[in-house]
């Protein structure tokens, strides 16, 4: 199993925050299946697995990156469906997302990172 470095997000967690911010901007909060659908894009063939999705959401709640609460029962009853567990991204979550986003861009810009990239001299065979 992949071990987490302190202060880092797993790729799925970053995607959850990314999609979550979009859904939250539109509806104020988001729930599991809406997130799975957003993560999958337009096709349903790759809806995130239940276990993977809800384990990640629980972990993000534990880390204080998300807040979870149950939807009011009256709303769910009014629409004749089970209650949704609604998530919102906390301030800390927004910061974590911004940091993860910067870290994704940073290695390309950083001179040390560029120096660390494998170099191929002109005329040498390509690695591709």
């Amino acid at each position: 199993m992949a071990r987490r470095r302190p202060g880092t997000l797993f790729p799925l967690e970053f995607s959850i925050l990314d999609s979550g911010l979009t859904l939250q901007a539109a509806d104020g909060s988001f729930y599991g299946f809406a997130l799975a659908k957003h993560l999958a894009g337009s096709s349903d063939s790759s809806l995130t697995a239940h276990g993977t999705l809800y384990k990640s959401l629980a972990r993000l709640v534990d880390l204080g990156i998300l807040e979870a609460s149950w939807e009011a029962a009256a709303i769910a009853e009014g629409e004749a469906r089970p209650r949704r567990r609604l998530y919102t991204i906390t301030g800390e979550g927004e910061q974590a997302h911004a940091r993860a986003l910067a870290a994704r861009v940073e290695p390309v810009r950083s001179p040390t990172a560029v120096a660390a990239l494998p170099r191929i001299a002109p005329g040498e065979p390509s690695l591709a």
Partner: peptide
């Protein structure tokens, strides 16, 4: 976890209904 999963399953069925998917396809998914 059980309630959240129940909600997820219901949401998927409702969404699949709207998208015109077959019950077998939804069950497989």
């Amino acid at each position: 976890r059980r309630d959240e999963l129940a909600s997820d399953l219901h949401e998927q069925a409702t969404w699949a209904d709207a998208a015109g998917q077959s019950p077998r396809c939804v069950a497989r998914s």
